[in-house]
Structures are given as C-alpha cells and as structure tokens.
Design a protein around this nucleic acid. Sequence first.
DNA 1: GATGAATGAGCCTTCATTCAT
DNA 2: CATGAATGAAGGCTCATTCAT
Lengths: 192, 192, 192, 192
Amino acid sequence: MEETGKYQQILEAAIELFSERGFESTSIQDIAQWAGVAKGTVYLYFKSKDDLMKQVYEYCYEMDIKACEKEVDQEKNAVDKLCRRMDNIIEYLLSHPKEARIEQMYRVVLSGKKTLPYYQEEMYQAIRGVVEEGIEKKELRDMPSSLLTQIYYGIANGLYHGFQDQPGLWEEREIKEQCHQLIKDSMAGRNS
Amino acid sequence: MEETGKYQQILEAAIELFSERGFESTSIQDIAQWAGVAKGTVYLYFKSKDDLMKQVYEYCYEMDIKACEKEVDQEKNAVDKLCRRMDNIIEYLLSHPKEARIEQMYRVVLSGKKTLPYYQEEMYQAIRGVVEEGIEKKELRDMPSSLLTQIYYGIANGLYHGFQDQPGLWEEREIKEQCHQLIKDSMAGRNS
Amino acid sequence: MEETGKYQQILEAAIELFSERGFESTSIQDIAQWAGVAKGTVYLYFKSKDDLMKQVYEYCYEMDIKACEKEVDQEKNAVDKLCRRMDNIIEYLLSHPKEARIEQMYRVVLSGKKTLPYYQEEMYQAIRGVVEEGIEKKELRDMPSSLLTQIYYGIANGLYHGFQDQPGLWEEREIKEQCHQLIKDSMAGRNS
Amino acid sequence: MEETGKYQQILEAAIELFSERGFESTSIQDIAQWAGVAKGTVYLYFKSKDDLMKQVYEYCYEMDIKACEKEVDQEKNAVDKLCRRMDNIIEYLLSHPKEARIEQMYRVVLSGKKTLPYYQEEMYQAIRGVVEEGIEKKELRDMPSSLLTQIYYGIANGLYHGFQDQPGLWEEREIKEQCHQLIKDSMAGRNS
DNA sequence: GATGAATGAGCCTTCATTCAT
DNA sequence: CATGAATGAAGGCTCATTCAT
C-alpha cells in the first residue's frame, strides 16, 4: 500500500474498514492508521468523513457499473443481455466482496432518505431500458417494467448470496447454464 | 403508548427511531424521550444499546416469521407454498415498513460478521425445507437447494422493492397472478 | 467552590480562566478541571462554549450595572449623579478586576461585529440619559451628548486604570475630591 | 500588494485579517493566502504565530506613536501639547481603524499578563512627561501625574469612540474647539 | 422500580509547525 | 528562498453508561 498515492491508500483503507465495521463504527483515526498516514492527512484529500464515505461509495459504484456492462452490448436479445449482465454482476461481486458490501450498506442508508431513491441510478436505469425494450418486443413477460427490473435485480442478488456461501458452485459450467435458464424462464416466461 | 408496559414502550420507540435515523444516529436519550421514560429506565430493561438493538431486531424478525408462515401449511405443492409465503412476505413488509427497514439494516451489519451468517436463520431454513422437498418431488428445478432458496428470497425482495415504489400495483389481482406465475416459472421451470 | 451549585462553580471557573487567559486560550477542559467537574458536565449547564462565554459576560455585566447604579438616583444634579456613578464604577472595577477584564474583552470582540454596537447597551444609555438631561438644563457643557457620554466613560476608565496601578490612592479622601472636581470641570465646563 | 517585499505583504495581510477576525480566529494559512505567499514562507519571516502577532502590534504601535507626536513639540504649553497630541491621536485612529483595533486587542491580551504593563510603554511615558512638567509649572492640576495621564488617555479614547460613531463630527471646527476646551478644563482645572 | 445528574472515553476537525524538494 | 504536503497535538462536543436519591 506504500507505492500508490496517498489518496488511493486512504480510499483503500476506508473500503477495507468500512466494509468490515460499517461507516459509523470506523473512525478517521482507524482509517489513517490502516493507510499508514496521519489523521490530518486524511483531511488533505477528503473534506470530511461524509465526503470520504461518499467518494468511497462512488468509487465502488463506478467499478461495479463498468464491470457489469462489459460485453453486454454484444448480445442481441433481451434475455441474453440480462444473462450476460448477470454473469458480470456475480463475477464482480464475488471478486470484490468488500466493494459489494459498501454498495449494499450505502444503499440502505440512502433508502432512508427520501431525496434520491436508489433506483434512479444508472445501473437500474440501464437494466430497466433492456427490460422495457424486451417487453415491447415481446421477448419478455408483459409485466410492469419496474417490477420486472426489481425482480431481475433480486434474482441477481440472491444468486450472489448463494454463490458466496459455496464459491465452488460458480465455477461449474452446468450450474451456470441452469442459472441462465432460470433467468430466461423468470424474465421471459411463456414467451420463451 | 402510555398504557403498555415500559418494555414495550421503549421497544416501539426504538423501532420508530432506529428505522428512521439508523442505529448509530439514534441516541438512548432520543429513545427514552420518545418512549416517555427516563434515560436510566432504558437500562432497567436492556443491558446496553447493543442489547436493545438486538432485541429490537429479534422482535421484528419474530413478527416477520410469524406473519410469513400464515396459512402456508394449508398448501400442498411446493410452488403453492412458496407463492402463499411470498404473498405473506410482501403483505407484511408493505404494512410494516419500519420493521422491514430494521431487518434490512441489521442484516447488513450482521453480514459483516462471519460468526452468524443470516442464512442460518429460521426463515431461511423453513424456505429451504420447502425447496428441498420440492426438488426431491421433482416439483421444483433440480438445482442446489441453497441456490434456489436464495433466488426465491431475492425475488421476494425484488418484488417488495417494486411494490414499495408503486404501492397501488399490489392491489391489482392481475399483477398478483403474474407474480405467482413468475414464481412458478422460476422455481419450477420446465417441470411445470 | 464545593458548596455552591455546579452552574455557579462553572461560571466562576470560567470567569477566573477567561479573565486570565482570554476566551480562545481557555479550553472547556480547563474550565471543567478548575470547577472540579467533568468536561461533559459543562454541557449540562451551557449549550456551547459560545453560550458559556455569553452567559459569563452577561453575568459580569449585570453585576456591573447593578453596582454602578447604586444610590445614583439620590442625587439631584447631573454632575453629582455622574460623580456618584463614577465612584461606584471605580469601586466595582477595583473590587472585581476579573469581571472588569471580561467585560473589556467581550466588548473588544463585540466591537468587531457590526450587528450590536456596544453603546446601545443599558449602561451607556443610562449615562447618556443623565448627560442629555444635564445638557438641557445647562448643567453640562453644550456638546453632542454622545460625545460627552463617551468622554465620561473614557475618564472613568482612565481613573480605573490609574487606581489599579496604585490602589492606595483611591482610599485617600483628598484624591477622591480632586477626581470629583475634575469630573465637574470636564463635564460642566464654564457652566460651573 | 505584489510589488512590496514579502515581509511587508505578510504584515499587511496579518493586519487586515487580525483586525477583522481577531488573533485566534485567523490562521497562518489565511494570512499566507491573503498575502499571496505559501504557508511555509510566513515562517521564513516570522518565528511563530505569536511572533507575527507581536511584530504586527509593534508595527501598528510605531505608526501610532510617530503619528501622535507630529508637531507636538512646536507647542510650548502643556495644555497645548496635550491638545495637539489629542488631535493627532484621533486623526490617526480614525484614518487607521484596522491598526487601531489591533492595538486595542493586543492591549487587552497584554493587560492580563503582569509582566509587561502597557503603561510602561513609550507613549504613556511621553504623555506622562508632559503632564509632570505641566504639573510642576502649575499649568496643570495638582494631582498624581499617573492618574492625570490615565485620565487624559481615557478622554482621548472616549473621543475616539465618539467620533467613530459619528465620523462627520470630527470635521466640524466648532466641535474640535469644544474638545480642546474640555481638555483644558479637565487637565488644567482652576489653574486656567 | 424510576430518575436524571454526572462522568469520561472517544469522535471529528482544525491548525501551527516542520521539512524534503 | 519558496513551497505545500504531512504531521499530530489539542479542542469542542456527544453520548453510552453509572449511581445516588
């Protein structure tokens, strides 16, 4: 952690500790210590603890988005896009458990504030776009797109938890195919 | 709130405030004030703030479990049991948003601690029991039961979020049936 | 300092330390220690350090006002009123040097803020009232009353400093009479 | 502020900010920024913040002294000297409000420390010299010179405050003459 | 049982000062 | 000379917890 810049050191220390202990239970002191800098140094790079929290979340979120959209556009059908994206989601979450936890935590906090519902976020909108298009083309179930989007999200999340418990499963080709089939069956339904 | 016992008063005040402001941002003072008792009184009924948190969570969780299991046993098939349970889940969560938030928050905290994975909980085990039996009887998809259980959980959660955004939807009979169909398609797959 | 209430203890500790080290250089910790209470206790009686500062000032100011107005009304003439008041002022300031310093300090701070000019204070207005009446009755010099009031204030202050350096002087009857004569000559001028 | 030396730039920035916000509320960072230099540079010219404060005060004090003594020696009588000096004092203070505030603030701080009573200062001694000589020559009241000096000081200060509130007054010839008469009456008394 | 005054550990944040570049 | 990143001591304030009444 010595060779990267101080900003990155602090950010990574924060990810480590926030994900482990939660936002409130992690002190700036702890973060500074873990990052190997003095307490005051944190404030050279971040305006406040809130600012640090926000930047940590945004950093994680950006990584997540970028990872999840990889090669999605190469697929033509809605179902295929959703399967590909789900592979990406799980791949990313399993390889970045700390970042995943931070996103989760931050969203719970956000969901308490009326101002910015989390579903207005980029990723939600991206998925919803695919879902709406799929519904229009009759590739997907004819349900309210918001509901279908949330269901997709929920399945992805459920799968993540499932694979988290038994990491080996995700490596098995057969399992992955079963999951794809499940996605298809749930999202497309009788249309398939 | 005056006629119930002090214990209940404090518990309800805690539910109210924890769900609104989060655990760390709610002080014992706030809770005591809301409950209409003195700060010291809280410590007559709860060993510490952590203990209060835990009891609050457990209280919410118990209510949740009880509500979700209602009439589930009247169904015969695995799919029907799961549908019935899902109706209960959504019904409960929508009518108890505060309790829902507290369960959510507490699980995020718990998930950080390796000691007590949340899937060892009663509700998870109950669902898993149904799922395993369903798989055995070929009523459900032949997938690892843990995975299928998590997926079911995820769908229920997704639906909750969806209906939370548009509460009116849940009242529509057609929508509910679509949801049941979706549960069936995802959990039973080609078997159906 | 043990027998009085905590509020008074803290107030007196603050007077002691503020007058000795200044507002900014005195920490709440210092005050608590001097008062023989815990840091947190200070915040049971004062909302913040600023609040403590303000209450300390107001306490000193009230004492000052009360002391300075003693028996002033028994005098008929403006000059006599001013002399009597000046005796009171000096008497008070000499016997309450700490409180005097606090008033001084606070006014210097206040004078930096445009909002509440210190001359709108009670004591200033009281003196100005006497001065204006005196001018009207031709007992005092025909000068702008604001100016004459400030001059009176200045003389009183000067005398205080003078007597502070040589406290014995104030005890001498002759000196006191000289001072009264000086007040008369300066405030009444040729009218006398 | 660019063409003068760094030392002067910093000094002037300090005068500006100290007079506006007070000593403690002005950071070295603020001063450096206002002066257009780096924080470290301040420490090339001043040993510490305290040192800067002291030099700022001394700078203001020197200006004050120089301004106040202008043409005082042209007068023969003690009273005239005192009047002339008072004109200078007020003229200076009104035209240098920032420097005036700094002197004021610093003296309040100093007056708390027993080590260096401010009356041992040059200006005090200069006035006292005039006063003592005047008393000796029976031009002034026969009172302890220290007292009379402090009174003179007090009057000057009072006038300053008076004119500060109504700057227009100081321009009126008649007012100025009234002030001179007042000085004469107070300092010389029946001797005049 | 009930109270709330008192405590003090611990948090976030600021800022004078240093020093390698 | 000049810089500004880095430091860490210190301060204001909050709050979980205790305990005498």
